[in-house]
Amino acid sequence: MTSVEFSKEIRLKTLEMVYKAKASHIGGAFSMADILAVLYTDILRIYPHAPQATDRDRFVLSKGHACTSLLATLAIKDFFPVEELGTYAQNGSRLLSHTSHYVPGVELSAGSLGHALPVCVGFALAAKRKQEQWKTYCLVSDGELNEGSNWESILLAPQLMLDNLVLIVDYNKIQSLGAVKDVIELEPLKQKFEAFRWDVFETDGHDHVALKLAFTAAMQENKRPKVIIAHTVKGKGVSFMEDKLLWHYKSPDEKQYSEAIAELSA
């Protein structure tokens, strides 16, 4: 399965989970679906049947509220049975509405924003100190960069020369209560990271070829941490969800569900 085909599957499964559970956050789950598809198809060294293998790459989703598309990704990749996705957010299920480290393939529970990047600095530092070759990938949201803890890590990572750390910003331009530029403007984001001594790769977060090129370029061992600023669209893939704050919260009704399936299957 190509990453493009995979991304379609991820979105369809995500939609089904959100619809069935009447859950929120489909907009942010869709905005990062292509990033996940490319990572899990072409970039990450993973072992679905040995998820704790020492030499695996560590991928951590920091925006844990958008976990539906990660869970779909892991299930399709056979970390756990696809049928289990049907239990998402149901009583007693291990598939919570935020990432849970009790799910195979999930490195870290994340729900409170601004926590994962410091932990990922710890992972990357451990790999350096143990002279191991695996890499650490951390996916954050744009709104999440409001959290000061991220900037503590962004300051320190270059000092530690963590070129084995790749931060991905899912830059869909909408956060919880409004447009990012109206809440706390992040621009000029590229220059901010450059000033903090990171290697910056700016890309269309839905163009699989461009994403793959960025991830490949970010593998360079040059003693600098890497950030991929992925410009994305919230709700990407379903026209009436795209670029709408509402889909941070809303779950599709029956008619919207059918329309979304039709669009995603086209």
Binding site: L108, G114, P118, V121, G122, L125, S153, L156
Partner: peptide, 26 residues
Amino acid sequence: PDRFLNVGIAEQNMAGIAAGLAKEGY
């Protein structure tokens, strides 16, 4: 020296880094 680090004046980062190192066996 391989098992020491001054993370700077940033305790949230320090606690998170500690979690990451601990998860990797330290």
